[in-house]
Design a protein around this nucleic acid. Structure first.
Lengths: 340, 340
DNA sequence: ATATGTTATGCAATCGTTTGCATAGCTTTT
DNA sequence: AAAAGCTATGCAAACGATTGCATAACATAT
């Protein structure tokens, strides 16, 4: 029951010096100010007594918490795990801790989360919840705490962000499908109020153009969320329409799963009768039935880069905003095939 | 650029009272000590000025951080997402923030993480990394910070834990398989140094006994980690052996995926030729090929209960340790079928 | 009118660090 | 040997909140 933690003063008393001297020794930057012999004595006493600095006291004095806040919509979405991993690994290596919060796409939740983070004086924020137009981002900018957007970004040009290049992804998908002979390609679009939903749709349009295909308005369905259910709904709408299609390209892998479901329910074999493509390459996308052809976005790297930029921004608050788009890859699996 | 945060003193000056009065008003417990009229004035001034308490200063004084540390082996494992969600939701509702750390099953990492948490003076710990015999748990117990184990637990009886009831799970699986006519059931065991690996194996043995079946030593393979690769290796060993088997029960879903791979590679149809069962019911287990019959462990609840117990333990440190085992369910899908 | 009790507020110490400044104890210069 | 210059350490004031104690101000009892 050693409830009483060892403090600077304890160490100081033991060695017979003043606590400020101990502080200087324990801080690498100021270590050289004190006589080597004494420093050594202090160091050994500190480790022997098991001294650990009190992070509160330090932070209170220095106004740095070595803590960053991370906002994600819902970490039950498996695509976020690799992102968090990338963030965590990068930050941890620099002595930072990460506080995670789910916001479930609820504005109030987002607001309260930012306030919580402010109270805890996080040194920076990573925001993976932004809408294309987001008051929250304005607030954050005004407030002054360094932050970077990851995965999704608002339209603001003067804030840093790390995304995957959704346009290129779209191009790759369509050119792949076109090569397989597909012409009538349906698009199941994610929510357009998120950059992912919007940009991927733009990528689809551009890809069609580049492939010399004309997107059919009746073969595009917009969804309200990136969910299986919305994927199913969209697909049933497509099936109910009178327009034929030979391939479905979905706004993300989870929606693609919904597409699978609804097609199968209609007796249609995914990958044989109709090709399906997703986006993200979420974990286990290769295990689905059939294994899903999808755009692999380097999720771990998105996280890591976001963290890196944030660190730069923390150490130099006046650095200019940077936007990074990471190149995705097309992963061809069994859900796409030559048009019948 | 409002870098300067509003402090208690600022509010006090504005209203013309002392900062201690403001403190009392802002703290619900002591609000009644001050005249209503003044309290109202302070309250409105505080909100108007946008006062937010400085968490460090508070924590320094009160020795409470309203922060808890969470250690997981690897949050890339999709099974952990729901657990974290359960934890986060519960703690958040009580004003706590969660700091997550991956330890990748590395003892040094675990050690350094606990130290980091100590520095940050977390009010409690949730540990999902424990081995059956774990020095770390001893350390934590000695140290005195409240903690609870989740998912996995050490053998210690006097520490709290929240697990799923692995034995019952095993029974359900075996009785299901027996009912389908399976007698020669192989077991791909997870690492025995984790309670999950060990208890599930015990559950398998017990289930066999209850079903009047004799486990065949040659049909049990022990793996070093809960990974697809180990699942594959184990399966190839089983296939190489001369003993026939009609079903494979794996220590968790991820290993079951490895089993799938290796069986398919051998031209064996999972669910038809050989039945396969997993454990956990990880997200998207219903999307695999074939959809996986598995033991559903209530992951969100495991997290939530762990958090609840921790909260109790924080508010009353002398409370006695509690161990909760949540009842799992068998989810029958297409990976199991009548024996051929 | 004085003594007593009650209550609302202020004072000041404290939590454990960090850090600018003062100073004691040297060394070096002249 | 006195003056000047270093350097290593200590002193004490922060940081922003909480809280036991003192006290001013008023109400009540005698």
């Amino acid at each position: 029951m050693r409830k009483t933690r060892v403090t600077l003063k304890d160490v100081a008393n033991k060695v017979g010096v003043h606590s400020s001297t101990v502080s200087r020794v324990l801080n690498p930057e100021t270590r050289k100010m004190v006589t080597e012999e004494i420093a050594a004595k202090i160091l050994s006493a500190a480790t022997e007594m098991g001294y650990r600095p009190n992070a509160f006291a330090q932070s209170l004095k220095t106004n740095r918490s070595f803590t960053v806040g991370l906002m994600v919509p819902d970490l039950t979405n498996p695509a976020f795990a690799p992102i968090i991993k990338g963030i965590d690994n990068m930050l941890e290596a620099h002595g930072y801790s990460v506080i995670v919060a789910n916001t479930y796409n609820l504005p109030e939740k987002q607001q309260s989360t930012v306030e919580k983070f402010r109270e805890r004086h996080v040194d920076g924020l990573i925001i993976a919840t932004a809408k294309r137009k987001d008051k929250l981002i304005d607030d954050c900018r005004r407030e002054g705490t360094p932050f970077v957007q990851a995965v999704r970004a608002s339209n603001d040009t003067d804030v840093s962000s790390v995304l995957s290049d959704e346009h290129i992804g779209g191009n790759m998908v369509i050119s792949h499908l076109a090569q397989l002979g597909h012409k009538r390609i349906a698009y199941v679009a994610g929510p357009q109020l998120f950059s992912t939903g919007y940009e991927r749709y733009q990528g689809f349009l551009q890809g069609m153009k580049n492939a010399g295909l004309k997107p059919d308005r009746d073969l595009v369905v917009f969804c309200d969320e990136f969910s299986e259910e919305e994927g199913r709904n969209a697909t049933s709408k497509l099936l109910a329409g009178r327009k034929k299609f030979t391939a479905v390209y979905a706004g993300n892998d989870i929606m693609a799963l919904g597409v699978y479901d609804e097609l199968e329910a209609d007796g249609i074999k995914c990958g044989k009768d109709i090709s399906v493509v997703g986006f993200d390459d979420m974990p286990f996308a290769d295990k689905f039935n059939p294994p899903l052809t999808t755009v692999h976005t380097p999720l771990v790297n998105v996280g890591a880069e976001a963290a890196r930029i944030l660190l730069e921004n923390i150490s130099d608050p006046d650095i200019l905003a940077r936007s990074i788009k990471l190149k995705p890859d097309l992963i061809v699996r069994a859900s796409t095939g030559r048009v019948k």
